[in-house]
């Protein structure tokens, strides 16, 4: 990552989000006011960034879920692996996203892939920790009962421990979902578009900022609800009221 490689990238980025700014003032009668009418008229302009943002959220979540769950299952099976794994995914989470993109751009180039790699990395700590906690919270007696009835360790993991950990796992996935939608707001630094790009395309125009931000909030809420719906479908016993 030499300065030589980074400088032209930055120049190109700033060109992207400040290039269109001059014309923006004319588009809204109230010059940078909220202008709901303008938002309605220009709503279709946000659909493509929204779709990019959906992909930037859902794909890292899906890949991240599989990866982190696998890591957590390993760490559960071999407890010695848990501390180094946790340290690794925690460090990943502390890297500022802009720095992460700049580092990755030298490896994966500018674009969608770079954003997905970084966003996936950020989901790891949230999902990993919850999956591992969920697996560890399964009562010893339940696992022993399963062993005592002749279930293999694989049958116990997939048939008892993982299902019983689902509520905790999904709690982690919900946090990861809203967090990913938020962090994906910076994906345009990697050249991957998204609603962040819309915001930074005209940050002084309030109508533009509000329209893009509200869409991000709605997307975060929708994803959380979707995760919750899947959780409810997969954990019918949770709704069974204790009496």
């Amino acid at each position: 990552m030499s300065g030589l490689a980074v400088t032209p990238v930055l120049a190109q980025l700033s060109d992207d989000f400040f290039g269109d700014r001059q014309g923006a003032a004319d588009r809204c009668p109230g010059n940078n006011e909220l202008c709901p009418g303008w938002i309605v008229d220009n709503f279709t302009d946000y659909l493509n960034p929204l779709w990019e943002h959906v992909l930037l959220s859902v794909i890292p979540l899906a890949i991240g879920f599989v990866l982190a769950t696998g890591l957590a299952m390993l760490a559960h099976r071999y407890p010695k692996l848990a501390p180094p794994f946790l340290a690794f995914v925690s460090i990943l989470f502390t890297i500022p996203s802009i720095a992460f993109y700049l580092i990755l751009i030298n490896v994966t180039g500018r674009g969608f892939a770079t954003a997905v790699v970084a966003l996936t990395a950020y989901t790891q700590v949230l999902i990993f920790r919850n999956v591992l906690t969920g697996l560890r919270e399964v009562p010893q007696g339940t696992v022993e009962a399963a062993q005592g009835m002749g279930m293999s360790s694989r049958q116990i993991l997939f048939g008892v421990e993982l299902p019983m950990a689902l509520p905790t796992i999904f709690a982690g996935l919900r946090i990861a979902a809203s967090s990913t939608v938020g962090i994906a707001g910076f994906a345009f630094f990697a050249g991957a578009g998204g609603l962040g790009q819309s915001i930074f395309a005209d940050p002084r125009f309030r109508g533009n900022v509000v329209a893009a931000s509200v869409l991000m909030i709605l997307l975060a809420a929708a994803l959380e609800l979707a995760v919750l719906a899947v959780q409810r479908a997969l954990t019918p016993w949770q709704r069974a009221v204790s009496r």
Binding site: P139, G141, T142, E144, A145, A146, Q147, G148, M149, G150, M151, S152, V160, P163, M164, L166, T235, W237
Partner: peptide
């Protein structure tokens, strides 16, 4: 072991039921 355990009934305190 697995075969033996399937042939021998095993009951522990109620915590042993699978809640899911």
């Amino acid at each position: 072991p697995a075969e033996l355990r399937r042939e021998v009934g095993y009951a522990i305190q109620q915590i042993g039921l699978f809640p899911h």
